[in-house]
């Protein structure tokens, strides 16, 4: 590498003639989404994060088959077992899709090739949602297989107790979790900081808010519409009343849309170093 550097190849600057002939068009959004999707898989850590979606689905399914009593080998139990790791992995994917540009400083190149941060972040959001939805269908496939194999081993009839509607709500809930991670990544722009914040939000905050609700009547009334975690729970149960939709909308605006708007504003003005 150090001495054999004399090459005869020469870069040719494009002449104006060539440039006008090739009539450079604006980079289409679809191409940016494609590149952002590729970036989620092309590092070792990114690849294993994606692979972990499949791996944890299979492990969770195997665990149910091995440990659950025969009458518990129902589709909803498989779905719940697979869904649990998913609610952790998908937000991580959402976080890292944004923060790696800052933590790894690759944003210098990304935002120079596409000097419109809103477009790049929009493409990242679409890529993240795509991964989230595909991941849920992988979970659906593994869960279906688990139910068939599990009930066959146990010699019972498979129990399909998750409706298409319920599945759709679970997908929505998982994607909302992922988008929350995306938002944290955007606001914090540091991988470690965003991940820690995510766990504080999902693991530390709910019991504290629960404690508050148990002891303070005013908060117990208020909690459904200000606690985003709380408001998302009905999605996973498969039954969402119109009042619960309203609560979800209010809490979502407070915990997701507002900080997302602030984050977008900051990022579009901030320096990329």
């Amino acid at each position: 590498m150090s001495t054999t550097v004399l090459t005869t190849a020469r870069p040719e600057p494009a002449t104006s003639e060539e440039r006008s002939r090739r009539a450079v068009g604006r980079i289409p959004l679809s191409r940016i989404v494609g590149v952002e999707l590729r970036k989620m898989f092309d590092t070792r850590s990114g690849f294993w994060l994606m692979a972990s979606i499949v791996i944890t689905s299979v492990l969770a399914t195997a665990a149910i088959i091995v440990f659950a009593p025969d009458d518990q080998l129902t589709f909803d139990n498989f779905a719940a077992a697979i869904g649990a790791p998913m609610t952790v992995i998908l937000p991580m994917i959402g976080i890292l899709a944004v923060t790696s540009e800052w933590s790894q400083r690759s944003g210098l190149t990304t935002f120079t090739l596409v000097p419109h941060r809103g477009r790049v972040l929009g493409a990242k959001l679409l890529a993240a949602i795509t991964v989230g939805v595909v991941a849920m269908f992988i979970a659906l496939g593994v869960g279906t297989l688990g139910t068939l194999v599990g009930s066959a081993i146990a010699g019972v009839d498979p129990v399909w107790n998750v409706s298409a509607m319920h599945f759709t709500l679970i997908v929505l809930g998982s994607v909302l979790g992922m988008l929350f991670g995306f938002m944290l990544g955007l606001v914090i722009r540091n991988s470690a900081g965003a991940i820690v914040t995510y766990f504080v939000y999902t693991l530390v905050l709910p019991p504290l808010l629960g404690l508050l609700a148990a002891n303070q009547r005013w908060f117990a009334d208020l909690q459904p519409s200000v606690d985003y975690n709380f408001a998302q729970r009905p999605l996973f149960d498969g039954n969402v009343s119109s009042q619960q939709w309203q609560h979800l909308a209010v809490a979502g605006a407070l915990w997701f849309l507002l900080p997302m708007a602030v984050g977008l504003r900051i990022v579009r003005r901030a320096e990329v170093k």
């Binding site: 450079v24 068009g25 690759s106 120079t112 000097p115």
Partner: peptide, 17 residues
């Protein structure tokens, strides 16, 4: 429209994943 086709930029060679 497609900056990389007009302007080649190298600001910090270490700023890569």
């Amino acid at each position: 429209p497609n900056p990389g086709r007009d302007v080649g930029v190298l600001l910090d060679a270490s700023a890569q994943h």
